[in-house]
């Protein structure tokens, strides 16, 4: 029991402190620019591009897709930087030298970004309602909440995997940016999956967000929770797979870094 409480504390404190450390350099204006203004501008771009391509009736398709895509900002960039930050600030050797539970330490890095992701999606949908008349009247609130939670979990799983890369490469922002933009294309946020070639559809099936975006569109159109549960289960499993792959890599990198004495190599 004592060990359990200790691990829980480690999880919570790791989550809180890594988040504070990540944003310690931010001022409110920068936080707002990154979390509210940036996603809004991106949404405006893709909604206008989409409606230019397919007509103004399809605005909700792009609004929902891009509101959910906002989650990836926290899930991928936030989580990755929380893990990579230990390397840049020179605290990685202390972290790996501690006898703490690695799984708690690793997954704790994602917690605050899960909450941030939920907030981002809510803000995105609110922009959709205010600016593009998105109708949430027929949406089941419980189903929509569940979809957002599953989406934040799956993108954070991918973020944890990307975060591990930040332990071995200096170019993690290149990888992160590329993954984020690939999600914009292949998650179905901006294109019907059926319009993509077979190889594009195959990529979309192994990405987070693909199924949660499809589920959100279905639920907002009046679909029931039960109609999207199978999609959400698969999305959850995809997130779990990324998380476990990330954890295994984390342990492997720790082992390699200790063996080769490259913990602080840049």
């Amino acid at each position: 029991m004592k060990k359990f409480i200790l691990n829980l504390r480690l999880f919570w404190e790791g989550a809180l402190l890594s988040y504070i450390a990540l944003f310690h350099w931010l001022r409110p204006a920068q936080y707002l620019a990154t979390m509210i203004w940036g996603p809004l501008a991106s949404m405006l771009f893709f909604v206008f591009l989409g409606t230019y391509a397919t007509g103004s009736d399809s605005a909700s398709f792009y609004v929902i897709g891009n509101a959910l895509q906002t989650i990836a900002l926290s899930g991928i960039f936030g989580v990755t930087m929380s893990i990579g930050g230990d390397r840049w600030s020179g605290t990685l050797p202390y972290l790996f030298g501690a006898p703490a539970n690695r799984f708690m330490m690793f997954t704790g890095r994602a917690l605050m970004h899960l909450l941030n992701g939920v907030l981002g999606a809510i803000i995105g949908l609110t922009w959709g309602v205010l600016l593009f008349g998105l109708d949430l009247g027929r949406a089941n609130p419980l189903a929509l909440t569940l979809i957002i939670l599953v989406a934040t979990f799956s993108t954070s799983g991918m973020g944890l995997l990307m975060g591990c890369l930040s332990l071995i490469t200096r170019n993690v922002m290149f990888v992160n940016n590329t993954v984020f933009f690939l999600l914009l294309v292949f998650s179905g946020a901006n294109i019907e999956l059926s319009r993509m070639p077979a190889w594009g559809q195959a990529i979309s099936q192994v990405l987070p967000l693909t199924r949660s975006i499809a589920s959100a569109r279905r639920v907002i159109a009046g679909g029931s929770l039960s109609s999207v549960v199978p999609l959400l289960l698969v999305e959850f499993m995809i997130g779990m797979s990324y998380l476990l792959a990330g954890y295994l890599l984390f342990r492997w990198f720790e082992f390699q870094a200790k063996r080769r004495d490259t913990l602080e190599a840049m």
């Binding site: 204006a29 620019a33 990154t34 771009f45 591009l49």
Partner: peptide, 19 residues
């Protein structure tokens, strides 16, 4: 500090991809 938020607004305002 607002740099990240300036990228897409110009894409939108300058009509790069739509009028």
């Amino acid at each position: 500090r607002l740099q990240n938020g300036l990228e897409f607004p110009v894409y939108v305002l300058c009509g790069f991809m739509f009028p």
